[in-house]
Design a protein around this nucleic acid. Structure first.
Lengths: 222, 222
DNA sequence: CTGTCAAGCGACCCGAGGTCATTTATCGGG
DNA sequence: CCCGATAAATGACCTCGGGTCGCTTGACAG
């Protein structure tokens, strides 16, 4: 057999086959990204892993950035779904601290998502068509507003609109904290060799929980 | 005359002349960066603007990332100095809200600094020697601890160590919020064409002030 | 004035994203 | 069942930018 990841499709003619190819490429890229970094994922490798030629990748994604933005979309909206489920189904009393913990923990182990988020504006939105960006933002707005409304429902002390605003702050903190926590090899090395730099180290989930708790407590204490 | 920015130095032999060259290159790079982006600044352009050949740039900075990390250092430590001065000299009563405002306003108009910060971990620490990273972190720790102590002094409700932690959160929020506020041209276009996306827009200074105020209020309300 | 040394130079290399003329699998119609 | 049309797939090729290196040349010592 020749197939690498999925059954080998010979020529995608129907729209549905093309969709399969897209997913095949996204999966290949995600698998590579999981174990490396944005820079380290070469379009040629993605092609090879998907069992296709390099040129073919560009039939489905016009640029590397477009490919990764699509990857982010998948991950992000899947996360929103999970978060909404948790917020909807969780029984008992909802405090600010609990929401903070819920959000932070929902991101634990979601390394690809958080790393992609951290690159969103810096890299991904650079070399992408306005159509793709627009589509992304549209869907994002919808998701944020739904989830924001849910948060407001759970925390009675929130004013209308503060749920959405809270989620924007979540995004900012995730982006910022991850950049501090997810260290390049060089940085890891430095920390290993210089223990006195410890105060600059950041534990992602822990710090995110802390910051979000403070934010919500600040809103409640008003 | 041929000189572009500074008096034309013919061959930097003494250590002091070399330092002048370094600064000359940093200034050229900063000038270019101010009006464009990290990607748009080519090493060849930096060289040209400084009145030197491309190869010469690499005599002073081994990589593009090293050049920009050096630029960030300058900007960052200058900012710490200003912040410390403001925190030291400001009379009257210091509230959490005032500290938040002070910090946010001290970053207003410091576009190069904030944009560089947003790229720090994502790009700058990627292709740089451990020595440079280590030196940077050492100096950063020192600055953060000094400024953190000052913040604690101003806000009596802070426990030891919370000043530093607060500054780490500042960094996270600056990084995250700037990525949202500082939009690539494509994104700008999308926002212009789709007014209903407004809720996703972020005003950097405003949102930073808000978030920091909440954080500090959360600490005070404990 | 001259020899030495290293700052400066720029043609060159390399690797990665992206293109396009060509090949060829698939399918509908005769 | 074959054949011609269509467009998916291919990979050699292009471009561009970071980084290298052997040669050139200016500054200074003696």
């Amino acid at each position: 057999m020749v197939s690498n990841t999925a059954k080998r499709l010979q020529r995608a003619r129907k729209e549905e086959d093309k969709e399969a190819r897209r997913r095949q490429l996204l999966e290949a890229a995600l698998a590579l990204y999981r174990s490396t970094s944005y820079e380290a994922v070469k379009m040629a490798d993605v092609a090879e892993r998907a069992g296709l030629a390099k040129g073919t990748v560009f039939l489905y994604f016009p640029t590397k950035e477009a490919l990764f933005l699509a990857m982010l979309e998948e991950q992000l909206f899947a996360w929103f779904d999970r978060l909404e489920t948790t917020l909807t189904e969780g029984g008992g009393r909802w405090t600010g601290a609990r929401v903070a913990r819920t959000v932070a923990e929902s991101l634990e182990g979601e390394e690809p998502l958080t790393r992609l988020l951290a690159r969103l504006q810096t890299v991904l939105e650079q070399n992408v068509s306005t159509e793709q960006v627009r589509g992304f933002k549209e869907r994002l707005l919808e998701a944020v507003q739904r989830a924001g409304a849910l948060v407001e429902k759970r925390l009675a002390f929130l004013q209308p609109g503060e749920g959405v605003r809270f989620l924007l702050h979540v995004n900012a903190l995730v982006t910022g904290l991850l950049q501090m926590a997810d260290m390049a090899p060089v940085v890891r090395e430095v920390f290993a060799a210089a223990p006195h730099l410890e105060p600059l180290r950041v534990d992602f989930t822990h710090e995110l929980t802390h910051a979000l708790t403070l934010l919500l407590r600040g809103l409640e204490a008003r």
